[in-house]
Nucleic acid binder design. Structure first.
Lengths: 358, 358
DNA sequence: ATGAAAGCGCTAACAA
DNA sequence: TTGTTAGCGCTTTCAT
């Protein structure tokens, strides 16, 4: 059985100093001579000393813990955010407590907010699709830094969805595309709204035909990307390029194109958003817009830590630039019109009838 | 600013009892009359009392915390496991500390094991592809329950990969398939080895042709599924069904089939493993084998808690049954041989040359 | 630069 | 059934 762990007192005794000197040395605080400090550190190491968090937190009056509130652990982007957050937190001597909402749309259960208030010093929230949990947390006295969701007020770390979308659209324009379809999503997420706004602005600025049929609503899944693409490609004058609100949607577009005999990128260019791992593995590999998620996770923690230290953040909203990742799903449009003669091929068993129901 | 939180002393004072009585009442311990207990609970609630974890952990001599060691947060299955674990832990009054290794193959960094030993009572490990971190943790005196990785010894919660794979293969056999290809993975994961063993056993038991060409090695990604499928379908006598080691691989097979003009499920049946969210969204939707991941996460926590309470687990390895999810990618094979005349169609830009390199 | 004293908020052990 | 007494291991504050 693990006999009692080494305590600070033991380290201090071994080093022949008081407990307080040992504490200071181990916490990188001033007031210890270099020589003594080194001896303490060496002895602590030899003894395998690891501070007792509970005691430390209790004495300090606040836990060195950051809460991480996650709504949908499945969302491909949370993984990277979490990695970044955990890394930043740990290197600052903080632990990360995980609070995953069980259902993506679940309310913050009764009592979670006060519990977080008591067990953590602050919370990073990756809940993007609703923001009514924020007032609850704030009422309980927790500092919150949001990721991707500036709406609840307070500090937010986000990516530049608007300009990211614009960079994707600029890429398509530079290739020569003039009819660019857009598959959007629910507008509850600001990221989706921003991306759509970029598309609308570009349409206007470029004097492109204001054809509302080029905008189809999806829900960020491959399934609706598939259906929406069928709808767009069945248009009398189909787009030569489709910008999808996210990668799964774009992968659905690729699928629909293949089913309809529309070749990507020869007959149709496709751009996604997020750069999920599969984006590089599709055929053709997907051109998409990458967010620096790991960095955003780190930044969120650092912002929170600054807030806790009483340092006002540089800005309430910290926006990170995105990066266009050009792969194989985009090319210049063909000169002629999209040939439609192969369209219905092989679609016998497909959900053709539903294509209009998107 | 959040004024000082309510303490146990305040609750006790308000209720007119000693601190200890209040403590007992709030911890569901015996030795408090029903009447007094109810009054204490009511007052605690009114005052918004939330126990201070640090104080509690310090006094009790052990933290009510479980560590969750994750290797690859991207892996689609960890999300569900985590949800289950967090739910079970919290309902037992434990917090979950997240330790995510930054790289999937990263060593357990120096100091992490003792740190876990100090900050948690036990650890759930979802690190499946290596097990050298286990001795480290155990040496530091941490109880560990593994998920999906029985190899380091100790308690393990896993799914029945062997019989899961068999159920998939039985499904194909019942449909009438006799030439069944298998796309495997690195054998460092026991799950992969078990699934392959099932395929080999079935081949043997059924007296199916022992054709080593039917087994292709992949690496659990869509990209290699794509390549491996091309290789299988280019065989002189191609399989009528392909069992893939996991869903991404199977999705790659679907992609390759589409490219080659091989219709699924008419010309080729495809089965995956895991039931990732996209499996239901592919075209056709993927027949696959589902693991009860959420339940496994819960079970891992409960096993750990039992271990901590000194209760020996029922068995060192707890195996959960899997469930075959039949969707649209499987059907009876066609009577004739797979027609190959359309195979090279549209593959002009594809990575045909690489198909053999899988 | 170092140390002594005090106490964080709770629970374990024992007493009544 | 209830209360009292001692800490848990650390940091804070104030001394030296």
């Amino acid at each position: 059985m693990p006999r009692r762990a080494t305590t600070l007192d033991q380290v201090a005794a071994s080093a022949g100093v008081s407990r307080m000197t040992a504490s200071r040395a181990l916490n990188n605080q001033p007031g210890v001579s270099t020589e003594v400090r080194e001896r303490i550190l060496r002895i602590a190491n030899e003894l395998g000393y690891v501070p007792n968090r509970a005691a430390r937190d209790l004495a300090a009056g606040r836990p060195r813990v950051i809460g991480l509130l996650c709504a949908d652990m499945h969302a491909p982007f949370v993984a990277e955010i979490i990695s970044g957050a955990v890394r930043a937190a740990r290197s600052a001597g903080y632990e990360v407590l995980l609070y995953s909402l069980l259902e993506p749309h679940e309310e913050l259960r009764e009592g979670v907010a006060p519990l977080l208030a008591r067990s953590t010093q602050g919370v990073i929230s990756t809940v993007v699709h609703r923001h009514d949990h924020l007032p609850q947390l704030r009422a309980a006295g927790v500092q919150v830094v949001n990721i991707e969701n500036p709406e609840g007020g307070g500090s937010t770390v986000t990516a530049d969805h608007y300009n990211g979308a614009r960079s994707a659209l600029r890429h398509l324009l530079e290739l020569g595309h003039r009819r660019i379809g857009y598959i959007g999503s629910h507008d509850e997420m600001i990221s989706s709204r921003e991306r759509r706004r970029a598309w609308e602005d570009v349409q206007r600025e470029q004097g492109l035909p204001r054809d509302r049929q080029l905008l189809v609503k999806g829900d960020n899944t491959q399934a609706t990307g598939f259906l929406a693409a069928q709808r767009l490609l069945a248009l009398p004058s189909p787009p030569t390029a489709i910008f999808a609100n996210n990668d799964p949607t774009a992968l659905g577009v690729l699928e629909a194109a293949r089913l309809l005999g529309v070749r990507v990128p020869r007959d149709l260019s496709v751009v996604g958003f997020d750069d999920v791992p599969q984006a590089a593995q599709s055929h053709p590999p997907l051109t998409t817009v990458r967010q620096p998620l790991e960095q955003m996770g780190r930044s969120a923690v650092n912002t929170l830590l600054a807030l806790l230290a009483g340092i006002d953040p540089v800005a309430p909203i910290i926006t990170f630039p995105t990066e266009l990742v050009v792969r194989g799903s985009t090319a210049a449009p063909r000169k002629g019109k999209l040939s439609l003669h192969r369209q219905r091929k092989g679609a016998g068993e497909g959900p053709d009838e539903d294509a209009r129901e998107v």
